[in-house]
Design a protein around this nucleic acid. Structure first.
Lengths: 336, 336
DNA sequence: AGTTAAACGTTAAACGTTTTAATTTCCGTA
DNA sequence: TACGGAAATTAAAACGTTTAACGTTTAACT
């Protein structure tokens, strides 16, 4: 292993100087020396040891992506394209800026703290954090934290979210324009500070704006997996005169559509469906799903941008970004 | 920050002893001392500093998941459920065994080596490595390396793969049993040492076994994304009397089915399609895709198991595991 | 010529852990 | 009582960096 010492020795210079050159603090070093040092680095193939670096500097260049599991389940959080696509973007941009990405699942705040101190983690990404005890444990942390899809606000914690309310309002209004009046709302379970809440409000407001009375029996909750959707489907078909359905997540919509089809219910002939998210699947499902589009890649790059800004020590202009959504009309909605 | 020194001081013992207790080398420490130390650790909330640890011990507990990009593209490798689901499993099992997972994209072997030495990486996972210069660069490495879906063999590198040949043979035979004779094979581009090759051979052999002459004009290559599939689709419909299609990846099959439908071609009425992989999407697409199933979660856990065995220093029983596949009949194949 | 300040360095301590080799303590036995 | 040896413990070096704090030399002003 070639160390900074070797470089120093070979170039006849001290460790400090080599270190300064490596770290771009070369304003105190002559151009000629810099040249010599860089050559030696090149020739010997020197690579800095991050452990040594972080040991002394209290900064590791490690950014954590935290998957917070509420219940100790063995489900694979990577099944959700939202996590994976997001992580893919993170990895790329962080790397381009000299950072490293560590994945970590934690159940408790203690586990998180241990992880942070294990590695001197420099920054943290979270998806789907809600207002609860766990979130409160984040407050005393001083490293930059970027939340995604969390309706929680805090001075030093960034959030990057979506026009959930607006999107849902658009979806519902679209159905109403197409002549639908009895419209159900299906979604994963509500959690305080989660996106579902905002999406539900959008649905509710759209009804109100169109003078359609709100009917609580049209609100359906279930998990997103296939078998939960089957149960939900049974409830659905028992609702009389239902003509349309707003689903607050495309994965769920896709599962639901499959269940409905298996029961001989045609979409959009018997029932119209509109989704939310526009994941890649939505285009490929039959019929292609009309949905509210969000730009996952943009979301990821905005999140990294906020993170990087904070890492550089600049307080960013905004600590709360809301990304736009867009209605994508495909074939799962019919005009009444 | 509470260090090992603090624990030593408070319990009136040396750093060495504390270290020994922490690392389970407590055979040289009296039971009473162990007790005292553990209490102090608990009370002060001591958490080991991995940087310091790896600095001196040349082992970091960091396992890298490497995404090797051949061309410098900006596509998101996490779009592929194979990577993401796999990584999800890795993270869980590695964590349960005291390891940490770092994600890293590299373009060249040099980048990889730099990464390894940056962090003293203890082990490496790869998906989709092919027999090329990059692979050769892996040879001199001494840390455990686990490959997934790579038809390359090397003494100290593990591989965990699939019955690709058999699966493809099953798929093709299934179509033949259903009365099909003119069967095309569509797949992402062939690469030496990649799974596509094996899957192609299975197709070819099934034809041969059934005395159907092989027709090279029925072999179609394209990338998996939607627009490439559209082009491929144009070629497809120009083939006269084609009744069936083996697609060597479900993502591609799904895209292809959508393109075909957009051109007014009904599945399975006009053309039967059989896929490979059985990703979650396959069930939800219309018609539900008949495909060859593989167990991604099993694949992940087997891969970690091999990795852990090597990390413990045991040479595992096998360095090459082939997982079984299974035909899942759904509705995309019709009987002629 | 003498003073200053910039330019170009260096020395050595510190970071938190592991590990080797040395040291002390304790106990049973000759 | 002395002694051998096992058991329990320790001191100190080492890992590869960064970073204060300090030292030279040189160029530029009075």
């Amino acid at each position: 292993m070639v160390t900074i010492k070797d470089i120093a020795q070979i170039t006849g210079v001290s460790c400090t100087t080599v270190s300064n050159v490596i770290n771009g603090k070369d304003h105190r070093v002559s151009a000629e020396t810099i040249e010599r040092i860089n050559e030696a680095i090149q020739k010997l193939g020197y690579v800095p040891n991050m452990s040594a670096r972080s040991l002394v500097s209290n900064s590791s260049k490690v950014i954590g992506f935290i998957n917070h599991v509420v219940t100790k389940d063995d489900s694979n959080f990577m099944e959700d394209p939202f996590h994976s696509v997001f992580i893919g973007v993170l990895e790329r941009v962080l790397r381009e800026n000299g950072y490293y990405l560590m994945l970590r699942t934690v159940a408790t705040a203690e586990e998180l703290m241990a992880f942070l101190r294990n590695w001197n983690v420099d920054g943290l990404f979270f998806t789907g954090i809600f207002k609860d005890a766990f979130f409160d444990a984040l407050a005393p942390l001083t490293i930059p934290i970027v939340l995604v899809d969390s309706y929680v606000s805090d001075t030093h914690i960034c959030n990057i979210g979506l026009e959930d309310f607006k999107g849902s309002h658009m979806a519902t209004s679209h159905l109403i324009e197409k002549g639908h009046r009895k419209i159900a709302f299906a979604s994963p379970s509500f959690r305080e500070g989660g996106v579902v809440h905002a999406r539900f409000s959008g649905y509710q407001k759209a009804l109100e704006d169109n003078h359609i009375p709100f009917d609580p029996s049209l609100i359906l909750e279930a998990e997103m997996d296939f078998s939960s959707c089957q149960q939900l489907c049974d409830e659905l078909i028992r609702i009389p005169e239902l003509t349309a359905l707003v689903v607050s997540a495309d994965i769920m919509a896709a599962n639901l559509m499959t269940c409905l089809r298996e029961k001989g219910i045609a979409i959009p002939r018997d029932i119209s469906v509109i989704g939310f998210d526009d994941i890649s699947l939505s285009r490929v499902v039959t019929p292609p799903l009309t949905t509210i589009h969000q730009d996952m890649n943009l979301k990821g790059s905005m999140a990294v941008e906020m993170m990087l800004e904070r890492l550089e020590g600049n307080t960013p202009k905004k600590s709360n970004i809301t990304l736009p959504v867009q209605l994508i009309q495909r074939e799962s909605v019919r005009t009444l």
